[in-house]
């Protein structure tokens, strides 16, 4: 299958390029990126052809593209891909406003183009095993979820992550959606209410939030929390964590998705070096398979939309000092 990458703005685009070059039967045709410095770097690093515009790349008649631009700039790329009849894998959060998200849905539905939200953690073996245990009722009904998806400050890699216009927010916009999606996926129900405390204790040079704690009520009554902070220092042994504890009636499940790691004392100092397969690879395989077999992608626009609304509800909650229902947005 012939695949392209629309922008290297998001750090995940690099990982996708690695994955796509290693997938059998996949040709990574090229990429576009309006930033010359960034484009030059990735053209060199990956030996990839750069196209002058998304339209030029899409004119190659691709089967699928990754939309990995800045959060606020997904919409024009998705609309361009839809016009070209190309399936899209859209980076999370899928947008920074409800309006943009709805416009993307209209575009892909009108064109009959598959849309998948890039939630790679759904393809982590550890996450899948945890979900299976919940679905098999091993811990009984889930009453509480405790989630940590904190990380280092991504601004060190890409400045726009801390640009309120391009990112739509800071740490809360960056991280909330992963856990919000997994909670929905684990329990099969929506987030009914969000209360959030949002702050910037970690980076005085940016306007956006660098710390966010969310308290959620799931539709079925479970209490859930999300730590979406950029609270890990640059010298932390890894970028951060994705952890969930599910407190059930009969037991508690403790998930640490990246716990499988070597203790490495390498040239860069002490590092945690993961040895499990990259969930992004399984995500791409699932996406491309669904496109080839003309089935609905395993993670939908709706999944991306609902998770995004939780992040937006968190910002509104912090602004207004009250619990907010995502459905209000």
């Amino acid at each position: 299958m012939r695949v392209g990458i629309l922008s290297f703005a998001h750090v995940h685009a690099e990982g996708y390029a690695e994955v796509l070059r290693g997938l059998p039967g996949v040709e990574l045709v090229g990429f576009c990126d309006p930033d010359d410095a960034r484009a030059g770097r990735f053209a060199r690093v990956y030996g990839l052809r750069r196209y002058g515009s998304a339209e030029a790349l899409l004119a190659e008649g691709l089967d699928a593209v990754a939309v990995t631009s800045e959060n606020a700039l997904h919409r024009p790329l998705v609309e361009a891909a839809a016009r070209a009849g190309t399936a899209v894998l859209v980076e999370k959060p899928i947008a920074t406003t409800v309006e943009d998200a709805l416009a993307m849905r209209r575009a892909v539905e009108a064109a009959g183009v598959p849309f998948m939200t890039a939630f790679p953690m759904r393809f982590s073996p550890a996450v899948r095993a945890a979900r299976a245990m919940i679905l098999e009722d091993r811990i009984g009904p889930v009453r509480a979820l405790v989630g940590v998806n904190h990380s280092e400050n991504p601004r060190r890699h890409r400045a726009w992550f801390a640009d309120p216009e391009l990112a739509g927010g800071g740490a809360v916009m960056d991280h909330t959606v992963h856990l919000a999606d997994l909670y929905r996926w684990f329990l099969g129900e929506e987030v009914a209410e969000v209360y959030a405390e949002i702050s910037n204790p970690f980076d005085p040079e940016v306007e956006v939030d660098t710390a966010g704690l969310l308290s959620l009520r799931m539709a079925g009554g479970a209490s859930a929390s999300i730590d979406a902070s950029w609270s890990r220092p640059a010298h932390y042994p890894r970028w951060g964590h994705l952890q969930i504890e599910a407190v059930g009636e009969r037991g508690t499940l403790v998930l640490d998705a990246f716990a499988g790691h070597l203790h490495g004392w390498t040239a860069g100092g002490y590092r945690w070096l993961g040895y499990h397969p990259d969930p992004a690879r399984a995500m791409w395989q699932a996406f491309l398979t669904s496109v080839r077999e003309e089935r609905e992608p395993p993670v939908t626009w709706r999944d991306g939309f609902e998770a995004m609304r939780v992040a937006l509800a968190a910002y509104r909650s912090a602004r207004e000092g009250r619990p907010v229902a995502p459905a209000e947005l």
Binding site: R143, A144, V146, Y195, E197, L213, S215, R217, G221, A222, S223, S225, V247, G248, E249, R250
Partner: peptide, 14 residues
């Protein structure tokens, strides 16, 4: 937020 868990309870506070 506090929820009942069996005969016990679970609390998360911000």
């Amino acid at each position: 937020r506090r929820v009942a868990v069996g005969e016990g309870e679970h609390v998360q506070a911000l």
